[in-house]
Design a protein around this nucleic acid. Sequence first.
DNA 1: ATGGCATAATTGTTATGA
Length: 254
Amino acid sequence: MIVATWNVNSIRARLERVLQWLDRTKPDIVCLQETKVVEADFPADPFRARGYELAVFGQKAYNGVAILSRLPLQDVRRGFDGEQEARFLQARCGEHLVVCSVYAPNGGTVGSDAWNYKLQWFERLRTYLERAVSPEMPLLLAGDFNVAPEPHDVAFPEKWADSVLFHEAARAAFRKLIDWGLVDLIRLHHKGPGPFTWWDYRNLAFPKGDGLRIDHLLATPPVASRCVEAGVYREERKGKKPSDHAPVWTRLDL
DNA sequence: ATGGCATAATTGTTATGA
């Protein structure tokens, strides 16, 4: 089956593009981030009409995560550790696979309150995993982690070294999360540099190739051992009214 | 050094993103 994740930068602004992409690629499970809408206003009907069950965790204007699944959704959990913001949504898809749609804080600027919040948020996510799940169970964290883990995840690493997306402290926080027991599925199949998943809207970043890999599919070993293919739908960054992120996907032999 | 662009909430301008 195909599992994908996409930071859509507003599900209402992106609805037509998301539906066309769904109809073309037909993923079984999709994690969405930055839906930017409360649950009551989430445009669920066109997804239900395409055979998806939905789990939605939203708030007004900012953040917001969702999971679409062709397999029955059960055991939905909104947030972790008393989180106020709509950044984490967990559900069981089918009998065994647990999927989490994750939207990590951006961090504003290095040294700001938002920056400290970002670093602490990664600590709290790791603590939640330690408490609530296990590396032995089939678990997939899919989403926008707002961290490019290594130099070959950034097209121009020297230019981005001091940014919140590639700062050493953010990379260290991400590594600590991985060390709990997660495998980066893209890196099972691509050596790098790239594939990149985000390009700034400004300064012609996409045509210039100024990309970063900040959206990730992170799986426990029971899932990673079934990962036969993974990639980025780079073409979704092209054309009219794109998100600034491209979808990331994997094929799992489950 | 700054702003570039996009979105929501609002309806002129700000907050936030990455």
